[in-house]
Amino acid sequence: MKKVIVLLLLAAFGYYLAATFFYIDFGISHFTNGVRDYYLAHTVNGLSVANTVTSIVVSFRGFDTLGEVTVLFLAASALGSILYKRRHKYEERVVLFPSSRIVQAGSKLLFPAIILLGVYVFIHGHLSPGGGFQGGTIIATGFLLMLLAYQDYHVSHNILSIVESMAGILFVTFGLLGFIGGGTFLENFLPVGELGDLFSGGVVPIIYILVGFKVGAELTGVIYTVLNEKDI
């Protein structure tokens, strides 16, 4: 009986998935009408953001981004609470074999470059592909490299949580500042500037920089927690 129900559910799911893919040709770029024209028109004229995806993610659908950041925060804190131990007692991480001198020197050389790339990606989120989430992940990967290479490399959980909560609070604050002048949440209230400049797009780059800090801090915390977990 149970198997029949599972098969029926899978069949229904597969049918709707197949139907969706059947009606949309592979790689087609325009298959919906409606908000698309509004977004394309207002990204360049109203907001002067070069990257349409960024303008949709941060400005038009900014509330969804707040939700995504909240989901990530919840996931990170749930992981931290599951793997919670005595926080004040940090011992050496258990490694299968210590890194060689070449790996350590190479990581030291690569670490600033990776951090710089991450910062570049989220500062130029409104001009080029990428943004807060991508930049934050790249920064977390840099910290991961250092944590793997050096056994005694530690990041401070206090600094991470301060950075993360300040970024979150400032995100909501900038969103609420949009109410000034009768706007909506996350409405742009700053001058938009020239299209293609670094200082353009009003509130969009600020929000994305904050998202970058928040995501980077969260993912670094996740990696650090998982790496310090050891089986007893």
């Binding site: 995806v53 592909p129 990428g130 991508q134 992940t137 977390a140 991961l144």
Partner: peptide
């Protein structure tokens, strides 16, 4: 032609 999503997928899916 979705470089944003490609960047996310490369950073999160491949590495992290």
């Amino acid at each position: 032609q979705a470089p944003d999503v490609a960047l996310t997928e490369a950073a999160i899916g491949v590495a992290l």
